[in-house]
Design a binder for these strands. Sequence first.
DNA 1: CTCGATCCCTGGACGC
DNA 2: TGCGTCCAGGGATCGA
Length: 300
Amino acid sequence: MPELPEVETVARGLQRQIAGRRILSIMLGKTDFIDNPGEIEKELPGRTIGSVVRYGKFLLLQLTRKEDAGETDRESALLVHLGMTGMLRPQPAGEPHAKHTHVVALLDDGRELRYTDPRRFGRMAYLAGESLQEELRRFGADPLEAGLEEFTAKIRGKRARIKALLLDQRVLRGVGNIYADESLWKARIHPQRLGARLRRKQVKKLHRALQGILERAIVMRGSSIADFLDAEGQPGEYQRRHRAYGREGKRCFRCKTRIKRVIVAGRSSYFCPRCQKAPRRGKSRRNGKQEHAARRGKMG
DNA sequence: CTCGATCCCTGGACGC
DNA sequence: TGCGTCCAGGGATCGA
């Protein structure tokens, strides 16, 4: 599931592979995940891919009219969200199309930029001018750019559960289930704690944990748990470093307690019940009892 | 404002 | 071998 590190990896690969290439034509298959397929068919041919950057979990293919990339016209862009199973990569036009290939852009060097997505949970849209800016404004801060102050304000200013806040793209753009769980584990914060009730020290710890994990994951080219492949068709390596995500029943790397899984914000949330203390019976349901002692979370 | 439920969609896991 | 069932999950949407 492509999250910030995976999308960043794909963006860098695409920047290297297709920046400067002109789109000659577009072929569409299924289009139910595309906002405006008609405009994509009409506007993309003839445009040049100036640069490819990541914006939250989106890939932003910035387009220019002129073949000259120097004339960067950031007015228009193709937004691509990979959803759960989306893949975007250039391939030789001669190679057969993989199953579930829904968008093919023929490039001026004989290759095809192909979008494949079995589940079609992804999204694609051609946007320009004010509509583009408006769309981008819907999302919160980039977690790698947000300073501690901004991060703290966003987290402590909300009453939702911290896990829900991390996943909310309007709060922070780019964090998904894997990195939310990994950073909460690192910072020893239970996913159901309320953002507003976290202490400054904990928020600071979470901020550091999240940035450190995202940076490390980018270096390792993301996590390939299902079948994520980057723009070069390579899997990532960060899944080997997961400490909580997907480890239900396995032992915590810190204390050997078995990792638990609960549903928070509608998503599986993996955590260590010992390292990450549950909030004092809040407004949740009668979720039985599963912890009593409340050990100080060792300062630092 | 926040939450849970529901839907979208397909492949993979699992049971028989 | 093959089929039915269940489930995962990012995000939009809707009612509570």
